[in-house]
Nucleic acid binder design. Sequence first.
DNA 1: GAACACATGTAACACGTTACATGATTGC
DNA 2: GCAATCATGTAACGTGTTACATGTGTTC
Lengths: 178, 178
Amino acid sequence: MSLKHAVLAVLSHADRTGYELTRKIDGSVANFWPATHQQIYLELKKLDSEGWVTFREKAQSDKPDKKIYSISRSGRAELKRWVLESQAPTPVKDVLLIKLFASHLVSSDVLIDELDRHRVGHEVKLKEYRAIEREHFKSTHISRDALAQYLTLRKGIIAEKAWLEWCEESIARLRASD
Amino acid sequence: MSLKHAVLAVLSHADRTGYELTRKIDGSVANFWPATHQQIYLELKKLDSEGWVTFREKAQSDKPDKKIYSISRSGRAELKRWVLESQAPTPVKDVLLIKLFASHLVSSDVLIDELDRHRVGHEVKLKEYRAIEREHFKSTHISRDALAQYLTLRKGIIAEKAWLEWCEESIARLRASD
DNA sequence: GAACACATGTAACACGTTACATGATTGC
DNA sequence: GCAATCATGTAACGTGTTACATGTGTTC
């Protein structure tokens, strides 16, 4: 449902190959709607058969040939229509919370170790995002077009900070309860 | 993959009917792994055929009969095995971020309205969670068993606060850019 | 009389993952 | 020689959603 529009959204900024869409190039789809390359190639095929994207094949001598996809006029119209629809918040799904909910079955040491691994992971992500912020959005005035992309980055930063805060708090509470 | 274990996790605390599992009773599965009742009835059937849950049928005169499910010894063992596995963080998936990424196609007024709707939604959720916190976790000393459940609530509270912060910041930035 | 809460289920379809398959170039 | 990056694809399977179906009791 959403991957279709996620792909269109990225193509509305720049032409891309299927391969590029699966990578986290320039902070696009992969960051907020990850998918495998199989999934993306399939969607591109569907988008093509609906006329929402077009592609041109480009032969390369040193690397495999590639297909460069572009959003079409009707694709852009469809994307706009979809963006204009009001959106219910995406429900939270988190495996770690399920594990926590069942954690009365294991020792708190095991739990603390797991939480600490997650803490470190979120710390790393936060640093990455902050580096992107410094590099690409340092100027005081940001264009309207860049602003929207900046806000998705800000979401990443704020969410990672929240994760960190929660991991630290949880570890402290578990330590205190022993 | 995870719904199976989410259901086991809830049943490890108390017996439940399929119907109860689909509701947000006592802040269980529905809060961090939402699923439709069809999905849950199907999983319960699978869990039963694997011997991880058992059920007893209870006839009711005023309401439809129901099946009360319990976790079995092997189910508890399986749940423990699964909890002990180290978990990669659940990847972020968020439709709103896709829309933001494509928002250069629409006016900033439309965007601000949408962000404000989300802001209000998160405000309401935050209040709900805080009410649960006041009601159920007011004492200074919380048992180890209750602590794990409290931490899932804390995750909800911290995440909603982060959402609010981001919505407010984003609206302000969009207003300033006009 | 309509809508909602309780309570369970089947069937068809859409979405997503894993495994398998191919093949060139570049770096260790 | 082995692994990684670039680049695309098929097939089988598993997960999740939507629509449809049934039936009682309570509230507006």
